[in-house]
Design a protein around this nucleic acid. Sequence first.
DNA 1: TTTCACGCTGTGAGCGTTCACACTGAGCGC
DNA 2: GCGCTCAGTGTGAACGCTCACAGCGTGAAA
Lengths: 340, 340
Amino acid sequence: MSIHPASRRAPVMKDVARMAGVSYQTVSRVLNQHPNVSAGARERVEAAIAELGYRPNPAARSLVTRRSQTIGVLASELAQYGPARTLLGLEQAARDVGYFVSIATLRTVTPQAVRDAVDHFGDQGVDGLVVVVPHPGLLEELDRVAPAFPVVAATSDPERLLAGAGVDQRLGARLAVQHLIGLGHTSIGHLAGPFDWYDAAERVAGWRDALAGAGLAADLLVEGDWTAARGYEVGRELAASRAVTAVLVGNDQMALGLLRGVQEAGLRVPEDISVVGFDDQPEAAYFFPPLTTVRQDFEELGRRCIGALLAALDADAQQAPGVVEPRLVVRSTTGRPVAS
Amino acid sequence: MSIHPASRRAPVMKDVARMAGVSYQTVSRVLNQHPNVSAGARERVEAAIAELGYRPNPAARSLVTRRSQTIGVLASELAQYGPARTLLGLEQAARDVGYFVSIATLRTVTPQAVRDAVDHFGDQGVDGLVVVVPHPGLLEELDRVAPAFPVVAATSDPERLLAGAGVDQRLGARLAVQHLIGLGHTSIGHLAGPFDWYDAAERVAGWRDALAGAGLAADLLVEGDWTAARGYEVGRELAASRAVTAVLVGNDQMALGLLRGVQEAGLRVPEDISVVGFDDQPEAAYFFPPLTTVRQDFEELGRRCIGALLAALDADAQQAPGVVEPRLVVRSTTGRPVAS
DNA sequence: TTTCACGCTGTGAGCGTTCACACTGAGCGC
DNA sequence: GCGCTCAGTGTGAACGCTCACAGCGTGAAA
């Protein structure tokens, strides 16, 4: 609520300097926490800043520092729970360290769209970029474009096309399958995400690992598309074939559809078939029945990504390890198989 | 893939000017589509820009224009379907007109958090702000802070605390209730969102309107909190009391919980109780049973918000009407009441 | 021919900040 | 007392762009 003197324009450093009786350079030093400023001068400057309601002009600053203090976030499926939640973590972490977060979403993942987005961020002059939900094509195209700023991805990319952070998807899948094996299941299928997604591929690998570790065959693997509609379809098929007594599903949404498909066809869950999801979105506890699922800490993932990007930006930033551990949340869709 | 001559630093206007054999001012004119440039000069400049891979420096530009070409988006519940989807529309529309989108999320809606966020956007120098999912406290605090930039809200705020765009929630609720009345229901309850949310209050009003229009009593109104957990709770209660034969639920998540609560207690849907949700998130079609719900076009809402903000920014921008119409999607959770 | 207008172009200044440097005076050892 | 350092401060020059203005030539009107 400070009254701006005379002119209507926002106060600048010179105004602060005049009021504090110092040069504009001293004001700059106070702002940037330079050591060589006397306590008296610092106090007067701070008082003047408060009095005038002065705010440094970010454009002028970044013109000379060549830093925009802005991190770009490129997302492709923001309406989904995981990505949205990751964005949340990303934003909070970035803001905590004084960065602004600029987003762009990809309606379709085409090379052209990726290039446009990179151009967009380039035009804005972001300091770095985080890619959320890395559709594989996106990562490859990004690699091809080779932007002028560091890029980090939120993925469990096994080939490390890009540095970043990821959830240990393989571990998550293993946990789920081991739980099912522990309950006595011997035929455990997997409704996976699209095979060309890294996360999906890793989950398939974890499913295979666990099965192989128990000497079981990994014979029922179905490719899905992350949607409830596809889950429903596969649920109907599974109910008809009765090929497995348990199924690991690539995400909660497909699990929702599968649950309905299976039950609509007259099967009981978990008596006739056990189901494990992936993600643990808040609604999973209210599916019918409540879904056993693998929880991923998406916000932590977002934070780690910022950590990784900061490390790429400043050499002296410490970086938390990039792998986030998932954990199994057991609810009511899993149980001992009932001999029919 | 252009090779930058000699120095490693990014090319600037002067470099382009030299290569094109014109002055830097002519380059600027080409960039800003000024009319008075000869075709020849324009072509040479454009060729030089392409050749050098020149990109205007946004900081320098906004230093002098006092525009950042950035729109801030303040959201409080980004992990929910509606807000996330709105953000999507917002971002696309903003990018289409050459704006960057910077986001900040509110973990908790406290006056301090709102002020911090506004400061954050102020520090960044955004040209305007869009508020998504306006928790009423947020809007009031925003009104109090009175930021230096125009603010627009995505809300059906009846008091128009802020200009913006909104979905006609009242209409949506009316549509749903009329559908139930048409099926023969005479006791129709409403599990609403928190009463202090504008959207929730509007839906309550619509529910009342429709009931009054048919000469029915509006006696079962319950306040919820948007969560599936609360829906479950109310579902159990409703199953015990059998107070109504139909219920309009404030959002799909609560409807999910309610569906489970009601069915777990032995009631059939829709035979014993009909349920209508609100939002139509993609999963709603795979609830058990598939949910009849009111669809809201969140992306359109986002687009309208950008339109409203642009109108506040440039006087000469045309503005689409701010009210988005919802529509009822009938699935399997609604049917004729069965006399018990 | 002279004059004026107008399309096109270039020059100077300034946006608000930071960086490199130069300067001051106090404190200290010789 | 002299020179040294060194904390504290100020000055000039950038950063890359846009705006205001002035200059130039051409063509039409006088």
